[in-house]
Amino acid sequence: MDIWTKIFYAVISVVIATIYGLALGGVVRKIYARVHGRYGPPVWQPFIDIIKTHAKRVAVSHGIMFYLGPVFRFAGGLGTYLFIPVIFGSAVFANFSMAGDLLLVMYFIFFGQLGMALGAGEGGHPYSPLGIARGLSQMTTFEVPFALSVIALAIQYHTLNITAIVAAQQGSILNWTLFTNPFAVVAAMISMLGMNMHSPFSIVLAPQEIPIGPPIEMNSSFLATLQTNRGLFVAAKLILFMNLYFGGATNLVVMIVKTFLIYMFSVFVGAAFPRFRPEQAMRFFLKWPTIIGIISIIFVAYL
């Protein structure tokens, strides 16, 4: 396959993933509303929000880094997504998967937040650095169980290629990592709670404490970029988890069903718990999930 076809396919896949991520966001809002006992906003509300934020007539900037913040964030989401094979065996959704792409993806998950830190810091609002400090420190801590879990996978499958990991899980449902290495899955799913930033780990956006934290100064198109990224990034993370732990997907429908169910775990926890204090959240990740992650490595390496 020549590179242009590949790029063309990647563009299609990015657009579909973004639309899917945003729609997922709309569905989640609806589910939250139903838990609240409300009717809830329409599912397409996130799309209208993005159009509206783009349609603002004025955009206030605070300097060059302020432009770079959302761009870096979007690059983080895009980078995460582009190196994950979405559908096993599909040329359109293979993206740029290659040997060792798992490490690259893990880097990109971190990257967006760093870029955001630069941009939001330029905004000059005192709540932005507070939110960034919280976000980066929480990210460092939830990366620990996630990294341990990925190491366990690497030991188990002897590869860092996501396509190869998905390939190894094909055949039967019992080949999924969920059943071959349950400890790694538990550690990773807990760290996913932190990654998705629903309660109790919503300490970055915490509206009652630091009103939505880092993006507080982001307006108009800056915000629209961040919102678009949120759709893409959520989809990318869910697809990554589906690939690593739940056997991947062989067609679009399976992908949608699996990622939706994975996300529901985060959503239901989020609906039922209040928020941690930042230091509590960090302590939480460094305690049980980390221990479970270490157990998972021991489990695959020595048992």
Partner: peptide
Amino acid sequence: QAGSLGMGIIGQWTVT
């Protein structure tokens, strides 16, 4: 009180 801890659901129920 629940809302200040980030648990909006209780506020939704009680205000209703």
